[in-house]
């Protein structure tokens, strides 16, 4: 149970840091810690191959989300 608690605790810490950080791109850095923590806890909570898929799906999904937010914030690709 200790590893899950570690993961969850780090997640909470990361969530707090996201809230406290004023600058949008650097929020995303903390958000990625939260993603790692949640993805880890998913597998630790349910030790099954399906959980691996769930964790991967969550991780990829949230990474995609961060990517999209960051790219849109940056203004996207300038097309000519």
């Amino acid at each position: 149970m200790i590893p899950v608690l570690v993961c969850a605790g780090i997640g909470l810490y990361a969530a707090c840091r996201v809230v406290l950080e004023p600058e949008t791109p650097r929020k995303l850095l903390y958000l990625s810690v939260l993603n790692f923590a949640v993805a880890g806890s998913i597998v630790l909570l349910v030790p099954d191959i399906m959980a691996l898929f769930a964790a991967a799906a969550y991780f990829v999904g949230s990474t995609l989300e961060s990517n999209a937010i960051a790219s849109t914030w940056a203004g996207g690709v300038k097309r000519t």
Binding site: L64, N67, A68, S71, T72, G76, V77, R79
Partner: peptide, 16 residues
Amino acid sequence: EKLFTIEVMDSAPGIM
């Protein structure tokens, strides 16, 4: 108008 895209919009839609 299509003024704007982000990279993931090229790569993600197919697989997702």
